[in-house]
Amino acid sequence: MKKKLSPLSIIYSCLIFVFLYAPIAVLIIYSFNASKSRGTWGGFSLKWYAELFSNSDIMSALVTTLTIAVISAAVSVVIGTAAAVGIYYSKRRTKALLTSAANIPMLNADIVTGISLLLLFTFLKIDLGYITILLAHITFNIPYVILSVMPKLRQLDKNAYEAAIDLGATPLRAFFSVIIPEISPGIVTGAILAFTMSIDDFVISFFTTGGGVSTLSIEIYTMAKRGIKPEINALSAIMFLVVMTLLIIVNVRSSNAEKKREQ
């Protein structure tokens, strides 16, 4: 179905996108500004990117961010998938209850999650640092994994598990050789989403960190307190691109899956 858009609606859409993306565009452009001043354009340069990569604080924050993102995504995928399967196969009322219980943490304000985790860790006398950030990230990632896996379970033929058992598979084998492969697109989407959420997070990491451990977002915040340096622009530009790329992958995957289903 092709509809011709009126010029007015084109202009309107353009305005919305300009409004949404102008700040980021400015940030990316200024990350290539040779001049240190924010007001003037001193020509194109990659020197802030070079400085960024030679800054050891930033590089160690980058390693922290990436390892936490990978580990928390991996762990939350395992827990979240198991949880989703458990919720899906429970009785109707339990299912509704558990689904909403799993969704609430996503709607909860980050600051509330951050402070409550901080209180919990202090209460349990766990030293704040790398481990506490990791635990916090696993916690807030699990609902996103459940959210991505659930639709795949709903698409699954309700007899698929029974069919595997019927053909002689033990319950464990039926789970690993039928259920998991059948819902794997949802699991992969969940993993990418969890990874993105982890990289993206500032507030919760900020409350649960300690002992000098910084993620990239915390590092940027600390640097910004001493005045915005152009290398922060460069770092923010990179983070934006990484997150955007991942989100595009997630969206393309789900729209492909939809097209496939419609056929």
Partner: peptide, 10 residues
């Protein structure tokens, strides 16, 4: 062995 209503193919 069983043939299910909606076939339940993998």
């Amino acid at each position: 062995n069983t043939v299910f209503q909606k076939y339940a193919l993998f």
